[in-house]
Design a protein around this nucleic acid. Sequence first.
RNA 1: GGGCCGUUAGCUCAGUUUGGUAGAGCAACGGACUUUUAAUCCGUAGGUCGAAGGUUCGACUCCUUCACGGCUCACCA
Length: 502
Amino acid sequence: MNENKNKGPDENALIAERRRKLTEMREVGNAYPNDFRRNALADELHQTYGGHEGDHLREEEIHVKVSGRMMVKRVMGKASFIKLKDRTTQIQVRLERDRLAEGLYQKFKKWDVGDILCVSGTLFKTNTGELTVMAEEVTLVTKSLRPLPEKFHGLADQEMRYRQRYVDLIMNEESRDVFRIRSQIITYIRAFLDSQDFLEVETPMMHSTPGGAVARPFETHHNALDMKLFLRIAPELFLKRLVVGGFERVYEINRSFRNEGVSTQHNPEFTMLELYRAYADYNDLIEMIEALFKGLSQSILGSTTITYQEDEIDFSKPFARITVEDVIQKFNPDIDATRLRDREYLAGLATDLGVKVQDNAGAGKLQMEIFDKTCETKLRQPTFVTAYPTEVSPLSRRNDDDPFLTDRFEFFVVGRELANGFSELNDPEDQAERFREQVENAAAGDDEAMSYDHDYIRALEYGLPPTAGLGLGIDRLVMLLTNSASIRDVLLFPYMRPEVFD
RNA sequence: GGGCCGUUAGCUCAGUUUGGUAGAGCAACGGACUUUUAAUCCGUAGGUCGAAGGUUCGACUCCUUCACGGCUCACCA
């Protein structure tokens, strides 16, 4: 038996048996060779030779070198079938004792499902027409010490799928597909923006003043400088500094961090697209989002209609647009439309809905409470809600005709917010005033209120051109396009409480 | 944070209602088998039933607390 220090957690008899096999391999040579180079991937072989007649293939004598993890092993006496899985898909291999070097077949029979093999051989087709490699040489290049989950059901345990994503990815092709699509979505977004002359940038993730969103930040500490730092809650204020600097079109596909609850739609760290475009307003962004979503669904899923859980979503029609006050009326038909900005009236409605009304909440804040309670989940089809109250939009440009409102929208699909955008507030004096209000709110106990960012005001004083900007939740977008019910299904390593190893 | 549900062999699951000391399939181990497709056939081994207490002659089963997870409500994004 091996020494204790070499053992991983959860050692059991199955692992011990495989460890014993590894020890035997070490005794007769290099147990972890790395000198084999394949010359074909499984899906290339299926595409190129899958249509060939079996007799034809025999005559062609096509030699290939493949490698991958052994997912299936069927030993039938002096011959066996196995399946190797590479990054594309699986390819079957047949091993016959009498075609292999002396004693090799006996060694192979001790290998386990999960081991990583390299095979050289010739293509042929089985009686049932499956493209298969007849092995001439076979090498075990990585011994797998841990047994894989059961082949038919795969890995079903949700907790283990998230904690040990590597096992989930080995076993569940649907899970691999989700992350392939995630990558395609991000690639598509980059191409979409790059083609419009946007510059991709990276801005700090550690902020001395958190800002750009309404949320509690994570705090950390810089030892050498002995100072408090915050993980960013949004890159917004840095990106707008870049527009001041003359990068008129910028974007960042960013990881941001918010110290809030965890749910099927919230992870402490999440990915967002933020983009800023000078000489544009929020209507231009609405058009961009509409074009982006139509292009994405067509390109990624091959259709402009998609199924998400219980909903059929149609991206082909023009997306709906409605103002906050109109949508509140639509879903609250008994409301008194003449009192939509009457704080006392709204406070009463909010209280009836179970909202704890804060003393410093104005009509705008209360409108949003009512919206969240009565409207949000009903916005199933793609909808832009516009004209958000200034009170809840401290970075948005005030509407020219109605100072109660800003030129802002949020984008909803399947009852969830996917994006938030607005014409940027580029009046430094108005912005300074809004920051002061936020500071007052913080003093009054609002622990999500923004801080006063002096350097950001200074940047605005140099002059931010008229600009529009938006944030788009990438994780929620991926959920939508992969029909995933939980944000954890689209995050490779979602946040989990630490596992206890004893 | 509240509510509901779950945690049994490496994996997928029975067993809990009605307490009597744990089962199957796959995987493993030994054997048979040269075209399988969740291969098949014979045999063997594998579990302090999430943890700790309690009730009981006796607890996987009933009760309490805790841990982790899922769904959901609240809060938010």
